[in-house]
Design a protein around this nucleic acid. Structure first.
Length: 885
DNA sequence: AGTGTCACG
DNA sequence: ACGTACGTGACACTC
């Protein structure tokens, strides 16, 4: 027998949208309703095994129901844009599933479904109607079951006529009468005022229908009688509106709804586009490409072996016209990675040279080509590649284009950075994802050479296609200068710093570790005594139990899993129990011990005593760098105990010095420049203490009358301004009321009206353009600036205010780094740039260059770019990083 | 793998 | 009414 599934597309999309948190894919599209829709479809397909399937949609705003009642569905909230933008995606998805869909102007989805259920009754098919709307219950019959979603979309109640009778004591068609009496606020159907579900059911059990009730109006009493008499016409009209129309002129046969299953590559493509990775995996579609295997098979791949003279001569000839380079690097940390093979794409051949072959003397000409700065190379993640090859004794120079770096500039918030992901993003034939070829985690395994080389070749091939698209995009978006003159040159500077490494004296750290160990052990004993029991202080859960259950301290804040025990909470608990300071101290020392003593010791290379961090150039949405393995951008400084760690960072040559230079107030100077605020600019021109100046303006006192507390509060306001201020955030930070915070902000904006204008303008601009930019035209897209959800929108607004400031500061120090590197080379200096910490550069300097570098470094930093206010860099030096303060 | 916490700018 | 300050990475714990 035929089994039909008929889905009310609009209703299910609505339910899914409100049931799931807002998901966004890399391009900023919302996908939560699509996701919910998809999971529901999969569940239905699996559980029901339908022979026919159709999703009906409402079409147009005006239906025949408006003819008799123009207010139908009036007063309804507009569909949020986050949902409406998902309907095209749902329709595409249905196509990929091979599920038919239907809409007809002037009719709603339930009318289409109603018409089809009538036909099913006539044809003897079994039907499951799926909707979130209980009106649909009127369609239930012996053959038609109506599934209504319950709590989201995963779960449904299946209504047969028997169940409807059990729940409501009504026949399916009486559902119409029910609604005629009680109305429906969401559709603006009036019904009879004062009649809810309970009263309506009582009336229907007594009189059977709306007409029955109206006939027996004389039997009613009091207010009820009055209401029914008064709203007789409303009830009749409401019933009419609630009646599903079952005679829609469908212009197609039911055979077109036949469901024959989905095409795996097509569905895989659609799910990949939506970034539904979990579903791809669940359906085992991860390896299913849209022609990737075909693409790989069509490529002319030559695996080069040192003894294969034909291949070698072809490769030698090919080196003159290499279009892209790809090196397969395995491992997260490029300083401790494995390079598998180097691949080069020429117009007609892709050469894959396994690492062992590349090391052979016969391949010396390839190594020379790689090291030749005049041979330009376009590739993927060449910063990582340069490091990995360097550790294997092979130099890589002449990097001219990197598709990962370009992708980052084109959209820094897009997390797809793999070649396979970029193919999908730019609409190119997909290559297989690494994960599907290699597996992941413990299952990671390289396949046999044929498959491996084919995969590497397909990626090398893709690189050139992606590069061609991106070069154009960089021009179009005005980011070509930023790319070619700044980011690409910087990549090489970073690699130099990373390979150089920074010397770290293990004995200093070990000494510190020993002291910490004994202090931690003492403090643990004290905490256990005060708590009256032993427990794991490092476990937020156990600590929460001890503090809030055993000791009965007041709960200040909760996390989604339990009690919050962060430093903010603990500070508020200090007056209640003497255990609190000990816990705070334990936390502080434990952090130092685990992250900075044990963590850093693990990163010191035993043979050189150096630490090599890896700067990530494609992570931070604002344009900043980040640092990994280890992170050298968060070495303690604020508290003296932690600051001691810096004593371990020393010059790598005897008699040299550490020299550090940091920008003074770079973000506020940038703000002064881009906002054009006269007062702020003047403050920097005069090189005033900016927090004192702010306090004096905000509190309306003379600068010499600003006390420490006023300055502290002004400093917090300045931070807030840079972060995209809100009264809530400031009040939290200063522990004052929101009202007071709002007052501070208002006073600030009154004093710095140019800043207020900037903040207003940048948000408006983000709304118009969909993105904000830095001084060097770096972009960040902010699709959420148009969100209807207050929180999401507010977050985007703060980001719009902050990103041009933080991002311009990042642009500036990057410029300084490239210039500094040029200067060191041009002047033939031995001094080396080692670290960047957002507004600070750290060098190691021979004694005889110290005086020069003390002048040169700040000079280069201050002249990196010309702003309307001066830039200022402070320089210091010493025997270690601690002393260079 | 996700959460909480905390180090830095 | 809504309920967060911006940007990162590493560690320990928990499931």
């Amino acid at each position: 027998m035929e089994k039909w599934i008929l889905i009310d597309g609009n209703s299910i999309a609505f339910r899914a949208f409100y049931a799931l948190p807002l998901l966004t894919n890399a391009s900023g599209l919302h996908t939560n309703a699509v996701f919910g829709f998809t999971t529901m479809l999969l569940k239905l397909l699996e559980e029901e095994q339908p022979t026919h399937m159709l999703v009906a949609f409402d079409a147009g705003k005006i239906t025949f129901r408006h003819e008799g009642y123009s207010e139908y569905k009036g007063g309804r909230q507009k569909t949020p844009s986050e949902l409406s933008e998902q309907f095209p995606l749902i329709k595409e998805l249905l196509q990929a599933f091979g599920i038919s869909q239907f809409e007809l102007s002037g009719y709603e989805a339930d009318d289409i479904i109603g018409t089809l259920t009538r036909m099913a009754d006539e044809q003897g098919a079994e039907v499951l109607v799926v909707s979130g709307d209980k009106d649909m219950l009127q369609l239930a019959s012996d053959q038609v079951t109506v599934a209504i979603t319950r709590k989201g979309v995963g779960d449904v109640d299946r209504y047969s006529p028997a169940l409807i009778h059990e729940r409501y004591g009504l026949a399916p068609l009486q559902i119409i009468d029910l609604k005629g009496l009680m109305g429906d606020t969401s559709d603006n159907i009036p019904g009879i005022p004062g009649v809810g579900e309970k009263t309506a059911l009582k009336l229907l059990h007594e009189y059977g229908s709306v007409e029955g009730v109206l006939e027996h109006v004389a039997d009613l009493k009091g207010k009820m009688k009055e209401k029914v008499e008064q709203h007789k016409d409303d009830a009749i009209m409401s019933k009419k509106l609630a009646t599903i129309f079952r005679e829609v002129p469908l212009d197609r046969g039911t055979s077109e709804m036949a469901y024959g299953g989905y095409d795996r590559p097509t569905l895989a493509g659609a799910l990949r586009k939506l970034e539904f990775k979990s579903l791809l995996e669940r359906l085992d579609l991860t390896g299913e490409g849209t022609g990737s295997t075909v693409a790989a098979a069509e490529l002319n791949v030559v695996s080069v072996a040192a003894h294969d003279e034909d291949a070698l001569s072809a490769l030698a000839a090919g080196l003159r016209s290499v279009e892209s380079v790809y090196v397969e690097v395995i491992g997260e940390n490029p300083h401790q990675s494995e390079t598998i093979a180097v691949a080069l794409a020429t117009a007609d051949v892709i050469f894959v040279v396994p690492m062992a072959e590349l090391q052979a003397s016969a391949l010396g000409f390839v190594r020379e080509w790689l090291a030749d700065a005049d041979m330009e190379k376009a590739g993927f993640d060449l910063h990582r590649t340069e490091l990995s090859l360097a550790w294997h004794g092979i130099a890589l120079k002449g990097i001219s284009f990197d598709i990962q770096l370009a992708a980052y500039l084109l959209d820094p918030t897009d997390s797809t950075q793999s070649i396979s992901g970029l193919c999908g993003k730019y609409g190119l034939p997909t290559v297989q994802a690494d994960e599907s070829v290699y597996g992941k985690g413990a299952k990671f395994k390289l396949p046999e050479a044929g498959v491996l080389h084919g995969h590497i070749a397909s990626k090398t091939d893709a690189v050139r296609s992606i590069a061609a698209i991106q070069r154009e995009e960089l021009e179009k978006t005005g980011m070509h200068k930023l790319y070619y003159d700044l980011e690409q040159p910087l990549s090489r500077v970073l690699a130099g710093m990373e390979l150089q490494g920074i010397r770290c004296d293990a004995s200093v750290i070990e000494q510190l570790g020993a002291e910490l160990e004994s202090r931690i052990s003492d403090i643990m004993t004290k905490v256990y005594t005060l708590a009256g029991m032993e427990f794991n202080i490092n476990s937020p859960r156990q600590l929460g139990e001890v503090l809030f259950e055993k000791l009965g301290l007041p709960v200040i804040k909760k996390t989604k899993t339990g009690y919050s025990t962060d430093a903010d909470v603990l500070e508020k608990l200090e007056p209640y129990h003497e255990i609190i300071p000990s816990i705070l101290l334990f936390r502080q020392l434990a952090k130092l011990q685990s992250t900075y003593v044990e963590g850093l010791l693990k990163e010191i290379r035993p043979n050189t005593g150096k630490i090599h961090t890896y700067y990530r150039q494609t992570i931070a949405a604002t344009g900043r760098l980040s640092s990994q393995y280890p992170n050298l951008q968060n070495i303690p400084i604020r508290l003296e105990e932690g600051r001691q760690i810096r004593k371990a960072f020393v010059p790598s040559e005897p008699g040299w010095f550490m020299l550090a230079a940091d920008y003074s107030q770079i973000e506020l100077r940038v703000l002064a420049h881009i906002s054009g605020d006269e007062g702020l600019k003047e403050a920097f021109v005069q090189d005033l203490d900016i927090h004192t100046k702010t306090a004096s303006d905000v509190f309306g006192v003379r600068p010499e009358d600003v006390d420490a507390n006023m300055r502290r509060q002004a400093k917090a306001v300045n931070f807030g301004i840079v972060y995209g201020i809100s009264d809530f955030g400031l009040s939290n930070n200063l522990n004052i009321t929101r009202k007071e915070a709002a007052q501070f902000i208002e006073q600030y904006f009154a004093a710095f009206q140019g800043v207020r204008r900037y903040m207003d303008n940048i948000v408006a601009q983000a709304r118009t353009d969909g993105y904000v930019t830095t001084l060097l035209e770096r972009r960040r897209y902010l699709p959420e600036i148009k969100a209807s959800n207050f929180n999401i929108r507010s977050f985007a607004e703060r980001t719009a205010m902050n990103t041009p400031i933080q991002g311009t500061a990042a642009d500036i120090i990057k410029l300084a780094m490239v210039r500094m590197d040029e200067q060191l080379r041009a002047r033939g200096l031995r001094s080396r740039m080692l670290l960047q910490v957002h507004d600070e550069l750290v060098f190691e300097v021979p004694a005889d260059e110290l005086e020069l570098m003390k002048e040169l470094v700040p000079q280069v930093m201050e002249s990196a770019i010309k702003l309307d206010v001066p830039l200022k860099a402070d320089v210091s030096f010493g025997d270690n990083w601690y002393e260079a303060k």
